[in-house]
Amino acid sequence: MWERNPVIFLLLATAVIMVGTIVTMVLPFAYVNTERDAIASVVPYSALELAGRDVYIKEGCNNCHTQTVRPLVAEVIRYGDYSKSGEFVHDRPHLWGSRRTGPDLARIGGNYPDQWHYDHMREPAAMAPGTNMPPYDFLDNRDVDPELTRRKMEVLGFPYSDEEIQALAGKTDMDAMVAYLQKLGSDIPWREQQRVTLVGELVNPFAGDPAAIVEGRELYERNCAACHGSGLSGGFAADLTALNYPEEIFFRIIHDGIQPLRMPGFATLGNERLWKIVSYMDSEQVAP
């Protein structure tokens, strides 16, 4: 009788615990990371990217940021194409996370210029006013260890060259972190298609409205000035004072971003606010 015999009890309890374990934990190994999941364009991390990934782990970034985009309408619009199993085959451990105190980062790679990331890691509030992310300027003071990184690449079985390892000398944890962030999600060739397609005639509903210009200036200073400088004057990104584009072109650029230049799209601001920024920019243009 199990209530009187601890050996029988222990065997029974173990068996009961193992049923769900086998079905939901062991069995999925037969279905996951198989040929069917494979995505040809997904490649292992380079030595610098791997070093950066380990900085991400060391600093516990996964406590505030997730790395999985779910197949939900708002999520796909906000972050990009939803995550596929095959994208994670080189991830040991996974870094999907469980809380979004900050935004999801699964598709952050290629969205911003390197300089944006350096500035943002050093002083997040300067690039994202109102953020509660703490500064990570101390990453500048820590050097990547080339030999340790070589050993890590060996353990993980990732391909590397001696030149790649030698090139790590002089790199900081900050360089590694930025390299890793730029890699995230950028293996996926079809991610660029995941944009809202603008249809119909693009006409500024606020044309000639002075209030829109005032609001547009505030929006610009909050969302654009970190890269393009206060008052369109230029920063590490272009001076915008003498472009003289038609309003429709301004709108398209702000809405979609410019992928090759790693300017992110700002469709998440919503069309009304985008047009107000356009109104402001239009009002400030000077002849070349």
Binding site: E87, D91, R92, H94, L148, K152
Partner: peptide, 30 residues
């Protein structure tokens, strides 16, 4: 059972190891 299986990893140094499981499998085990 839980602790030992989820802790399976390959050590690199005394202070660093990589999970025995990758990506989606690792998430499911975790």
């Amino acid at each position: 059972v839980l602790f030992v299986v989820n802790g399976l990893s390959v050590p690199v140094t005394l202070f660093k190891s990589y999970s025995a499981f990758a990506g989606t499998n690792d998430a499911n085990v975790q």
